[in-house]
Amino acid sequence: MSTRADVLMRLAGAATPALLGFLGVILLASPLRLFGGEVPTPVFPLIIVYFWSLYSPGHLPAASVFAMGLTHDLLSGGPIGLWPTVYLVTQQIAISQQAYFLGRDLGVVSIGFAVAALVVSLIVWFVMSLMTATVLPLGGIFWQMLATVACFPLFALAFGRLHRRVVIEV
């Protein structure tokens, strides 16, 4: 009886990053207008993908990342395939820089996230410009990513506690 409960707890722990990712996608699709709609909604799933790909890639497999991106695309109504690509590129960046960033200060990791966000926003801008066949302004995506980067330290602290309490220690 207790073993089954243990297994369930372990499964829930392992699924936490993916579930959080889906919660982030839902939050992004909800009519959340921060400060009277003046601040664009931060891309919460991007923080989740970067954080877990850096600290524990085994808990967030590429399949979940892909599913998160696809849900994001389907709910936002944008071109399908854009956000899966973006999240997977973020995961790849995080995993490839793992050796450098593991054990570093939160400030250093945040700078790493800012660089990843910059790369990703250029991808989004390029794809959307290609789709509309015009040179779109970079301002919108820049502000959105700035809001996301500004949120990162707060979320990283919370996720760090969550990771230690829930994901690993069951």
Binding site: L28, A29, S30, P31, L32, R33, G37, P40, T41, L75, S76, G77, G78, S121, V124, W125, M128, L136, G140, I141, W143, Q144
Partner: peptide, 8 residues
């Protein structure tokens, strides 16, 4: 629901 992305 609302998509308040940069372009969408």
């Amino acid at each position: 629901g609302e998509a308040n992305d940069a372009y969408v």
